[in-house]
Design a protein around this nucleic acid. Structure first.
Length: 721
DNA sequence: GTAGGGTTAG
């Protein structure tokens, strides 16, 4: 055996002269809205200055810059100072681009992986094949107790040889049998124990996710002096990975180095995947580039690992880097690589590039499978690219490309995303008539989503009854869609019935369902009776939220109290519902003519970072972007803006040339109307904004318009008094 | 599942 190497960490630390990369692996600041830990403003005026600050930072953003302990990634960073990236200028965005690369030509870099895969010793089948197959089958069928096994194993048909031992181990399916047989072989001492026996057994144990037993076997091998090879280690590592024991995977990888065994590319890519799944992007890049620098030509599986990792990180540059690396090394992507990269493009939010990649894949002669099509359909749906989605669907049918259950449901979801009702109905019918792809709870949910968004209460309720009849579980999302639909249709009795049935059947209300009830509440204008019906549901789902509503609709409640409770409510709500919650609460207040409270809530929402980018300023243009606001919130924001602009005009402060209010046009077929309400409110305020001729969903005003409007408003006010 | 590594929904 070779002289023991130092650990991989030690190896990676050698010869470091300069840091090539910076570690800022986590540029994703999704935490902006989480854990509101608000500032305590020194003074609170009755008017809340939402637009007066140009700072983009939110209180939370300021408070979440805690320093983490140095990660392994930070420790490993220096190793990558002199690698031979073959890419032409594309680097994953986790990397900074170094200006120079230091290379010491006299000191070749120590290899981190063997370029030769471990050779497999061929073994021939036993002449007593049939007898041993029957023997293994009998063991497979007997009980799992030691006694039963002992009885069965006595019936071994011939002398145990290496070949027939392997045959039996390979034929034993349930892991306890493989495990017992190996143990039996070891204690009987009929033939010398070999690595391959352990490897085969470990593989069986991996199927059963028996990491602990695998580890015991590995220790036994050490004790008995049986060599652990690359196959042993890669099996141990992949089992640890399968059991989510990533620290164990890393431990065994390091242990391999310490015993002097060099990983081959199978083990190496297995450990790359471990680091990737741990989100340790920098380590993966370091290990990859270190391997490349020593002449390794990675195979498609490695690129699939890298592609998946960059997809999870939403790192588009990383994905391009993978494609570029493959191209320059001359590795042709296979089906799995394409599928992984397509999925990654979707996660990185690049539908256009996903489409090009998909076409490139077809052109290169790689036939798409179900996973490919699922990925692409999903991307088109999320992007609301109905034309592309429909075209692809046609091609799928024309070419007879494979369909499976997941693809069916993905198609249904896509229909919901882009608003294709009839197409969804056809698909749903197809599924019902099929043998193997019968609609399940999620297929029904997709249909409920479609009917719900369309406001087709009758069809939605018909589905609801059908689900009850067929015993298909209503899940929380289906329930949310139904509630939304019934609420919009003002069918409050059915709404309560559906809610109660759902709870009875075990649906656990989540924040989205509460948000849905909240939005229904904001719609139940006028009728105290209806309002109480919705509140009764909401009280069961989130009593604190109901208490908060009662607090804010009481005009006597002081702002400070609202602020404190607002903080509690939003902290307890999941990030994705915080803005919708705030939107609904504003709507509820406006419906009750509590305009001042609505303005307070908008202020609090802004303070807590729920409306980033609501107001954008450049030198030439100020823009109010209300696309993520509800109608009530958008109108409140508009009033607030006009008030602020009025002040600025009166103070004769600097103003840009143009003003822009952006409502969007409601790309989603089911979500339109904000621009219409907004336009009518502009009219009501007699504000000088007009629909933009160039850009739909935008209202524009010039500085002159605005100044004129302010002056005339105040001169007429003066006349009136 | 040929002793080892990579890809699908909500």
């Amino acid at each position: 055996m070779a002289a023991p190497l130092s650990s991989i960490t030690d190896i990676l630390f050698t010869d470091t002269k300069r840091t090539r990369f910076t570690t800022n692996t986590n540029t994703n600041t999704a935490t902006t809205n989480s854990n509101p830990n608000p500032l305590k403003p020194k003074t609170l005026r009755k008017k809340f200055p939402i637009y007066c600050t140009t700072s983009k930072s939110t209180p939370e953003a300021a408070s979440t810059t805690t320093k983490k302990n140095p990660s392994l990634s930070e420790q490993l960073t220096p190793l990558a100072n002199k690698t031979l990236s073959t890419s032409i200028g594309i680097q994953p965005n986790v990397l900074s681009k170094p200006k120079s690369t230091w290379v010491n030509p006299t000191k070749p870099k120590r290899s981190v992986l063997s370029h030769q895969r471990q050779k497999r010793a061929p073994y021939s089948y036993t002449p007593q094949l049939r007898d041993f197959q029957l023997f293994a089958q009998k063991i497979n069928e007997c009980g799992n107790s030691d006694d039963e096994f002992s009885d069965m194993v006595k019936e071994i048909p011939h002398t145990l040889t290496r070949e027939n031992a392997l045959l039996v181990l390979n034929s034993l399916k349930p892991w306890p049998k493989t495990h017992m047989f190996l143990h039996w072989m070891r204690t009987q001492n009929l033939i010398p124990m070999e690595t391959i026996f352990y490897n085969v057994t470990m593989k069986s144990l991996r199927f059963g996710r028996q990491f602990q037993l695998i580890e015991e076997l590995a220790h036994q091998m050490f004790d008995d002096g049986i060599e652990l090879d690359n196959i042993t280690y890669s099996t141990i590592i992949s089992c640890a990975k399968k059991c989510n024991l990533f620290d164990k995977a890393v431990y065994w990888f390091e242990r391999m180095y310490k015993t002097g065994l060099m990983p081959d590319e199978v083990t190496y890519s297995a450990i790359l995947d471990v680091y990737a799944k741990l989100g340790k992007v920098q380590e993966v890049i370091n290990l990859y580039e270190r391997g490349r620098a020593t002449g390794w030509k990675p195979d498609p599986i490695t690129f699939s690992v890298l592609g998946k990792m960059f997809g999870e990180a939403g790192d588009y540059d990383g994905i391009r880097y993978v494609l570029q690396e493959m191209k320059s090394i001359g590795v042709q992507p296979n089906l799995v690589v394409y599928n992984t990269l397509l999925e990654a493009m979707g996660k990185a939010g690049k539908p256009g590039f996903a489409r090009s990649l998909f076409e490139e894949m077809i052109e290169s002669g790689v036939e798409p499978n179900e996973k490919t099509l699922t990925a692409v359909i999903k991307i088109y749906g999320k992007a609301r690219w109905s034309r592309d989605a429909l075209e692809l669907w046609e091609r799928m049918k024309e070419n007879g490309w494979p369909m499976d259950f997941i693809l069916y449901n993905t198609l249904l979801n896509m229909c919901a995303d882009v608003g294709l009702v009839e197409e969804a109905e056809t698909l749903f019918k197809d599924m019902k008539q099929s043998e193997h792809t019968k609609p399940d709870s999620y297929s029904y949910t997709a249909m409920l989503n479609i009917y719900g968004s369309e406001g087709d209460v009758d069809s939605a309720m018909e589905l609801f009854e059908e689900m009850s009849r067929l015993g298909i579980q209503l899940n929380v999302m289906g329930c949310t869609c139904l509630i939304q639909c019934l609420g919009k249709a003002m069918e409050f009795d059915d709404l309560v019935r559906v809610f109660d049935v759902a709870i009875e059947r075990g649906v656990k209300p989540d924040d989205r369902l509460c948000g849905s009830l909240l939005s229904v509440l904001s719609l139940s204008q006028g009728s105290k009776d209806d309002e109480e019906k919705v509140l009764s549901c909401l009280r069961k789902a989130n009593p604190k939220l109901v208490a908060f509503i009662q607090l804010i609709v009481d005009e006597e409640t002081r702002f400070e109290a609202v602020k404190e409770e607002f903080k509690v409510i939003m902290s307890n709500a999941s990030v994705e519902v915080r803005r919708p919650f705030c939107n609904c609460l504003i709507d509820i207040c406006r419906n009750k003519d509590l305009q001042e409270r609505a303005h307070e809530l908008l202020y609090l929402g802004t303070l807590f970072g729920l409306y980033p980018g609501l107001h954008n300023k450049t030198n030439s243009e100020w823009c109010l972007d209300v696309r993520s606001l509800s109608v009530g919130a958008a109108l409140t924001a508009l009033e607030e803006w006009m008030w602020t602009l009025t002040k600025i005009v009166q103070r004769e402060e600097a103003l840009p040339e143009f003003f822009l209010a952006q409502t969007g046009t409601g790309v989603h077929k089911f979500a339109q109307g904000l621009n219409i309400s907004f336009a009518s409110h502009l009219k009501k305020l007699a504000a000088p904004f007009n629909p933009s001729e160039e850009k739909a969903g935008c209202f524009v005003a010039t500085r002159e318009d605005l100044i004129y409007w302010v002056r005339s408003k105040f001169s007429s006010a003066a006349v009136a008094t």
